[in-house]
């Protein structure tokens, strides 16, 4: 469903991403790994439309999307989380989920002002969808708390829930396990697998936690200094000499 061909991104003199090619098929978890500063987040930013790539093609379900504005790309059914959590801190947990569902709601101002039956029905549906996901990630009790006051692990889960209420086809997670304790990481592990198995979402994952990556990925792409180093199944990558030298050996 997602195809990235020869993607390049140049910042002035720095070639942060150099000819990266990868693809994500339906019902698949694909991971991008690589040392810090390798250009993983930059790849995400290009795919999700935050940066306009300086070279290469990005296709989503057959259509070219490179250089499109970010909100249009997200509306195609491809949402992301951020390496540093980005919530609407002063809004409540449930409001965070409602913001994400603006497209499911009737955006006609008048319909909302006079609360037409259609508007009420859609509003109730998005409330129910929010409730469902809050329960799914274990935040139901905190629904009316300000999002900024949640613990770090809870914020991470809320960010994923906020993506899921948009009913995406592809979910992009940027280091979702960063800063989580081992127990939380294990929960996250199960959550990501369940997203694929039960909700039929494809996942593109950036992660440092090797055990997590090796556990849940169907395929892995390794990037080093902006260049693709290797790609394949977890076993292939684990046994790749270049990878062992450049990445795993270091760590």
């Amino acid at each position: 469903m997602l195809e990235v061909q020869n993607l390049s991104m140049r910042f002035g003199g720095l070639l942060a991403v150099d000819q990266v090619t990868l693809d994500v098929q339906e019902h698949e978890i694909v991971s991008i790994i690589g040392p810090n500063g390798a250009g993983k987040t930059t790849v995400f930013n290009c795919i999700s439309g935050f940066y306009k790539p300086t070279g290469g093609k990005i296709l989503f379900e057959g259509g070219e999307i490179q250089g499109k504005p970010d909100h249009k790309i997200s509306r195609l059914g491809m949402v992301r989380t951020f390496q540093h959590v980005r919530l609407f801190g002063q809004m409540t947990v449930v409001e965070n989920l409602l913001v994400a569902q603006h497209r499911h709601l009737n955006t006609n101002l008048l319909a909302g002002l006079i609360k037409t039956p259609d508007y009420r029905e859609r509003e109730q549906k998005s409330l129910d969808r929010a409730a469902y996901w809050l329960e799914r990630v274990g935040l139901m009790e905190l629904a009316n708390r300000e999002a900024g006051n949640l613990a770090y692990g809870q914020q991470r889960r809320l960010e994923i829930a906020r993506c899921m209420v948009t009913e995406p086809k592809l979910l992009m997670l940027d280091e979702p396990a960063a800063g989580l304790n081992p127990a939380e990481t294990k929960d996250l592990n199960q959550l990501i697998i369940s997203l694929k198995e039960d909700y039929n979402v494809s996942v593109l994952l950036i992660e440092h936690d090797m055990s997590l990556v090796m556990d849940i990925s169907d395929r892995i792409t390794v990037i080093n200094q902006g260049r693709p180093l290797a790609a394949g199944t977890p076993d292939e990558v684990r046994n790749n000499d270049d990878v062992i030298k450049a990445y795993l050996g270091e760590a």
């Binding site: 949402v79 409602l98 955006t107």
Partner: peptide, 21 residues
Amino acid sequence: MPVGRAWEALREDEIAARSLG
């Protein structure tokens, strides 16, 4: 309503708001 929440979302974090469409 969605408009009001969108205003606040933009105030809170423009990048996140855009990433949600």
